[in-house]
C-alpha cells in the first residue's frame, strides 16, 4: 500500500485526513509535536505508525522519513502542521513571528526535501500543502500566520513547476474557518461559547457554515488520488466562498 505522511495529525484536520487516507488505501504515518496518547491511538486505529517530532527542529524531517522507510517511500506528503498566535502587528514579538515561520514554512521545507528522493525513485509523488484562506486574503492580527501561509502558496507554485516534470505533483489547499479544536481556543479568547463562536464565524462565510474537518480531508484525498493527475501548482479553496469571492 502507498505510504502517506501527515504532519500535525493528532487532532482536527490532520486527524480527519489520516482517517480518510487510510480508508482510501494508504498506509499512513502520523506526526505531531508530541504524543500524549492521541497519536498512538490514531495510528493503531488506522494500522499506521506514529512519528512524534517537532518539525521546526532541523533534524526532524530526515528523521521522520527514515522512521517510516521500512513501510516504503513516502508517496504522499500532507504538510498540515501549523502554529498560530494572534496579536496586533505592532505588538507582535519577534519570537512569535519566527516560531510561526519556523513551523509552518521552514519545517515543511525540510520535510519536503527529505521526501523528494523517495518520490523521484518511485517516479511519482504527491505533495499536498495545507495553506490558509488568510494566506490568500490576509487577516488582521494574524500577519505572521498569514505570511507563513502565503509563503506556502509560493512554495506550492514553485515546487509545482520544478518537480512537475519529474512526476511529483505539488498542490495546496487554502481552507477558511474549520470546525476543529482551534474553535474552542478562539471561543475562549473571545469570551464566547462554542455555539456563539460558530455563529460569529458563520456570518463571515458566504455559505453560512464552517467547513468540517472531513470536508477538507476530502480535498486532500482528491489531491492525493488518481483523479487529480493533471493538477499541479494549484490552490484549492474550499472556503465556503470566503476567499474565492473576495480575492
Amino acid at each position: 500500500m502507498p505510504v502517506a505522511l501527515i504532519t500535525g495529525a493528532a487532532q482536527g484536520l490532520g486527524r480527519a485526513t489520516a482517517l480518510r487516507l487510510a480508508a482510501d488505501g494508504f498506509t499512513v504515518a502520523v506526526n505531531d509535536l508530541t504524543d500524549d496518547g492521541r497519536l498512538t491511538d490514531l495510528a493503531e486505529r488506522i494500522s499506521g505508525i506514529a512519528v512524534a517530532a517537532d518539525i521546526s527542529d532541523p533534524g526532524a524531517g530526515p528523521a521522520m522519513v527514515e522512521a517510516v522507510a521500512h513501510l516504503g517511500p513516502v508517496e504522499v506528503l500532507v504538510a498540515n502542521a501549523a502554529a498560530m498566535a494572534m496579536s496586533p502587528f505592532l505588538e507582535s514579538k519577534p519570537d512569535e513571528w519566527w516560531h510561526q515561520i519556523d513551523v509552518n514554512l521552514s519545517g515543511h521545507f525540510r520535510i519536503i526535501q527529505a521526501v523528494i528522493p523517495g518520490m523521484r525513485a518511485l517516479g511519482h509523488g504527491r505533495i499536498v500543502i495545507i495553506s490558509s484562506g488568510w494566506g490568500v486574503i490576509g487577516h488582521p492580527n494574524a500577519t505572521a500566520y498569514a505570511a507563513s501561509k502565503a509563503g506556502l502558496i509560493a512554495l506550492t507554485k514553485g515546487l509545482g513547476r520544478e518537480l512537475g516534470p519529474q512526476g511529483i505533483l505539488t498542490n495546496a489547499i487554502a481552507p477558511s474557518f474549520i470546525d476543529t479544536e482551534q474553535l474552542r481556543v478562539d471561543a475562549a479568547d473571545a469570551g464566547l461559547t462554542l455555539d456563539e463562536m460558530r455563529r460569529v464565524y458563520s456570518e463571515l462565510i458566504p455559505v453560512r457554515r464552517l467547513a468540517s474537518p472531513d470536508d477538507i480531508a476530502g480535498a486532500v484525498a482528491f489531491l492525493a488520488g488518481p483523479g487529480s493527475s493533471a493538477m499541479v501548482g494549484q490552490i484549492l479553496q474550499p472556503s465556503g466562498g470566503v476567499t474565492r469571492t473576495r480575492a
Partner: peptide, 19 residues
Amino acid sequence: TEESMYCGEVLSPNAGAVI
C-alpha cells in the same frame, strides 16, 4: 460530489499551463 464548501471556485486541471 464534494462541493459543499466550494463557492465560486475554479479548478484547473491544466498540466501546469497556468499556475
